Computed example of a mutant assay.
Amino acid sequence: MTTTDRVLYLFGSAAPPVFDVASVVRDAQARGFDVCLGLTPTAARWLTPQLEDLRRLTGHPVRSEYKMPGEPDVWPKADVIALAPATFNTFNEWALGLTHDFVVGVVAEGIGKGIPLVTMPCVNAAYVRHHQFERSVSELRAMGVRVLYGEGGFVPNQPGQGKPKEYPWHLVLDAVEEAGDA
């Protein structure tokens, strides 16, 4: 890491594309980002066998829980935050301001701090029929979050027909670069 590296908080929730997060971290690092990785509790459980390797790759602890009051922060301040994949639950919690999980708390606070935020959901077509999903997309966009959903972003598959290896991570990192340059 050089002192000119921009700091990216890369957050992921428990959807199958999260299993590819190591390659996403390497791609972000190649783009000049110092990456701090945060995961929802379920995503952290899914990646338990990889957590130490991910810590070594990023050079920072992988976080999935809030720190204790009074403890120093172990990460540098974020220049940009990306939350992908964002599950139906995580996406709606964020839009509604329900911050019991570390990842959702940080992105919710990031809105108020004016940190550039990018998110891309990973939901199936059945979930997007729920009225709350479109309200959450609208709410997050209204708060200045760049939501990569629909044309030019994530397009849902039918239930059971997901293609996690085709999740368009490059769109997230392209948007992060644009946001980090702004």
Rank of each mutant, 00 (worst) to 15 (best):
L148E: 00
A86I: 00
F154E: 00
H60G: 01
P61M: 12
L148G: 00
D101E: 14
R141L: 12
P156E: 08
M120W: 00
H170F: 13
N89S: 15
L117P: 04
E178H: 11
L83A: 03
I81M: 06
I111A: 01
K165Q: 05
T48C: 08
L148V: 05
A78Y: 04
P41F: 03
D101M: 03
Q50S: 11
D5H: 07
V107K: 05
V106G: 00
S138I: 11
H130L: 10
F19H: 12
L83S: 02
G105T: 06
T40P: 09
E178Q: 14
M68N: 14
Q50I: 13
D53I: 14
E52N: 12
A125E: 14
A108C: 14
M68T: 13
H60C: 03
L98H: 15
H130D: 13
D73K: 04
G38Y: 05
Q29W: 12
L148R: 00
V137L: 04
P76N: 14
A84F: 04
V25M: 14
E166S: 12
D27Y: 11
V104P: 02
I115E: 08
W75D: 04
L173E: 00
V104L: 06
D101F: 03
D174L: 00
E139W: 08
A95I: 02
H100L: 07
V24N: 03
G180Q: 09
L57P: 07
V25Y: 08
L47P: 01
V145W: 01
R63G: 09
C122P: 07
R6E: 10
T2F: 12
C36F: 02
G32T: 07
N124L: 15
L171W: 09
C36N: 03
S23M: 11
F102A: 01
L10M: 08
V25A: 07
T3V: 02
H130S: 05
G152S: 09
M120I: 00
R146H: 08
P121W: 00
M143L: 14
A82V: 02
L148W: 01
C122Q: 04
I111R: 04
H170R: 10
V74F: 08
V18H: 04
